[in-house]
């Protein structure tokens, strides 16, 4: 069968099921998108269109491939980056430059929030 995760736990609602976010960046990414929605920069339905497109593209490229691991939040990130580009908030090239800057940053840098590495 597919990689559908199966379970049947019946614990109380706040505790049942697996975690919604599997890495801190996923939580942060969701927060960024939702904050932009709440401030009216774009609406959820517009974002949904981008998300559907990103998911469809991922599925076209990956479904049927062996050992694929569904990467919903990778799609979410693609959708947000494309929407920010199309609305002129962040051009794609500017985003790529910033990613490279952050990657080149020395270990032990200061930062204001959690992400998924230790130091």
């Amino acid at each position: 069968m597919s990689d559908l995760r199966l379970h049947g736990d019946t614990a109380p609602p706040m505790r049942n099921g697996e975690m919604v976010f599997e890495a801190p960046w996923q939580n942060r990414l969701f927060g960024i998108a939702e904050a932009m929605c709440q401030q009216g920069y774009f609406d959820r339905n517009t974002f949904r269109v981008y998300l559907i497109r990103a998911i469809a593209q991922w599925e076209a490229e990956n479904l049927g491939q062996p050992d694929h691991d569904y990467a919903y939040f990778d799609c979410f990130q693609v959708a947000l980056a494309e929407l920010l580009h199309d609305t002129a908030a962040i051009e794609a090239s500017v985003l790529e430059d910033r990613v490279l800057e952050l990657k080149a940053r020395p270990h032990g840098h200061d930062h204001s929030h959690d992400h998924d590495h230790d130091h």
Binding site: R28, L29, G31
Partner: peptide, 26 residues
């Protein structure tokens, strides 16, 4: 950091610099 973590941080820092968002909003 993972590539996804870096990209998320890049998006957030750029939005903050453009004053479209604050860390407190998130």
């Amino acid at each position: 950091p993972s590539p996804q973590s870096l990209r998320t941080e890049a998006i957030e820092t750029l939005l903050i610099e453009k004053k479209l968002l604050t860390s407190a909003d998130v």
